[in-house]
Amino acid sequence: MADTAPANFVDQSVVPGDVVLDLTNMADQTIKLGGGLRQDCDAIAAMKAGTLKFARPNKYWVETTQKRYVPCVKDSVLGIVVDSKADNFLVDIKGPSLAFLPVLAFEGGTRRNIPKFEVGTLLYVRVVKANPGMNPELSCTDASGKAAEYGPLKDGYMFECSTGLSRMLLSSPTCPILAALGKKISFEIAIGLNGRVWVNATEAGKVIMVANAIMKSESLSVVQQISMVDDLLKKLNDLSKVLLTCTLVVFLSSVICTRPREGGQEEEFIVSSQ
């Protein structure tokens, strides 16, 4: 394993223990190691299962997917307020421990205007401190102190996915499924690197469709993703037609039986309409 050329491992699957780079073979140059890699004398070994990635000029890291999130500075995450203390909100970001969100870490935050969040509020926040052995610290402002889209998210629906999927959704040429969905449906989306995705649209049906499409897309190829979205959009169109006729039927039946008595008729109607 150790004598394999490092180039072979780039964009390949690696498992913990694989020696992906051998420094003795390399001309003297500095390399930067990212997550999932460790140095053992002259050998660089993988510590996680995933794909080895390389970025010019000298960065190596292992792209993994997991359900648990390891907090990392500068990550944008979705957190759920668990409790509020005098100085901090306790926020769950799917990490090993709860994160602190200082009550002053908002745009123009002073002691006077402390925001009130009830338990269970969904927040789009940024990780500012992530030291081992300490609870991570969050902020609702960007580096320059502006709100910049951070803050509580209203309405919509939040679902959980793997960290790999959320990273895929955030990849820089827009991820094919989001591009395909966005062409036909208008929706808002907030993706946290901790494997939480929030979706909002005008209609509940669209939210459900987008959320399920994203959840399903994790194991699909680009072509499959696009064809799935096409199918879904076709179904959505058909469904809207059916719904239209259904509402017509409902309207007519409500006209016919103007006053449904408590038991029989109402039930029969519901049974037949499904």
Binding site: I80, V82, L90, D92, G95, P96, S97, L98, E118, G120, T121, L122, N135, L153, K154, D155, G156, Y157, M158, W198, A204, V207
Partner: peptide
């Protein structure tokens, strides 16, 4: 105590309302 809290599954207000 916070360790234990971090492991429980919790639901957001948004999800409840949406359902």
């Amino acid at each position: 105590m916070e360790q234990r809290l971090a492991n429980t599954w919790r639901m957001t207000v948004n999800e409840k309302k949406f359902i």
